[in-house]
């Protein structure tokens, strides 16, 4: 009888015990190692849902490491527009504008093409562990996959979100879900990942849903149609000079 009562209790405690086998820092390091790709070419699209309907925006992006990326929009509405992210800076190029627009300060809080993503969400070249204090809060299931639940709390105020909770796939070491909070504890953004596929040995999410909880009836879906990784990219494509051509 006593054995019957204790078994579920022991089982419940078994999860934290197993969690202790790996530290939060190790989980985050493994995640970063796994998600950072040397170089990539991506053909994708955004589906932006809001109260007025759904808008589709297509793009091609080039990326190098975790902090350099060039996005070229190919849909008619945004044709010719480019976003260049270098290190911690974001530049916008528009065909009819004679100068590059450098996003900084309050402008970074603005939405990218009316989506649920802000320019600020595209910044941040440091490791999560540099900016956040990580703690492991156990294991939870997300979409049927066991995930480490990692709580990240900001060490300083120079990060867009004071607190983040990440659900990191225990096997694949990619995140399945992220919740981002303000300092007051208000949930600001929700990200969930679906359709993970292997490409050249890397686990790539082909579908991501981002929700800005401050916007009503709004969500943004990112789809990857095609991706090539670890290919040769001319370093000049990430230069400001090249951007204006």
């Amino acid at each position: 009888m006593m054995k019957n009562i204790l078994l579920p209790i022991l089982a419940a405690f078994a999860i934290p015990v197993s969690v202790l086998a790996i530290s939060a820092e190790d989980v985050v390091r493994k995640l970063e190692k796994n998600t950072v790709i040397k170089t990539a070419w991506t053909d994708g699209c955004l589906l932006i849902h809001d109260r007025f309907g759904t808008k589709k925006t297509t793009f091609i992006s080039y990326s190098r490491g975790a902090d350099t990326m060039l996005i070229e929009f190919t849909s008619v509405e945004e044709e010719g527009m480019k976003i260049l992210r270098t290190s911690n800076e974001i530049y916008l190029f528009y065909p009819d504008a004679e100068e590059l627009i450098r996003m900084q300060g309050a402008a970074l809080k603005e939405s990218v093409l009316g989506s649920d993503m802000s320019y600020e969400d595209m910044t941040g070249d440091k490791s999560l562990l540099t900016s956040y204090r990580a703690t492991l809060e156990g294991i939870e299931e997300v979409d049927g996959a066991a995930c480490y639940k990692v709580n990240l709390e900001a060490k300083s105020s120079d990060v867009p979100y004071y607190r983040e909770i990440m659900w990191i796939d225990k096997e694949l070491f990619i995140y399945r879900q992220i919740h981002k909070f303000s300092r007051s504890g208000k949930l600001l953004k929700e990200i969930s990942i679906n359709n993970i596929r292997q490409v050249s040995g890397k686990n790539i999410p082909f579908h991501m849903v981002l929700k800005d909880t401050l916007k009503r009836n709004s969500s943004t879906e990112f789809f990857i149609n095609d991706i090539k990784i670890n290919l040769h990219l001319d370093p000049d494509i990430f230069s400001l000079e090249e951007l204006t051509w």
Partner: peptide, 18 residues
């Protein structure tokens, strides 16, 4: 002088002109 104007387009895209 020249200024660059940023605006949200009719279909909630983004555009700019100098």
């Amino acid at each position: 002088d020249k200024i660059t104007i940023l605006a949200t387009t009719m279909r909630r895209g983004s555009n700019a002109v100098t």
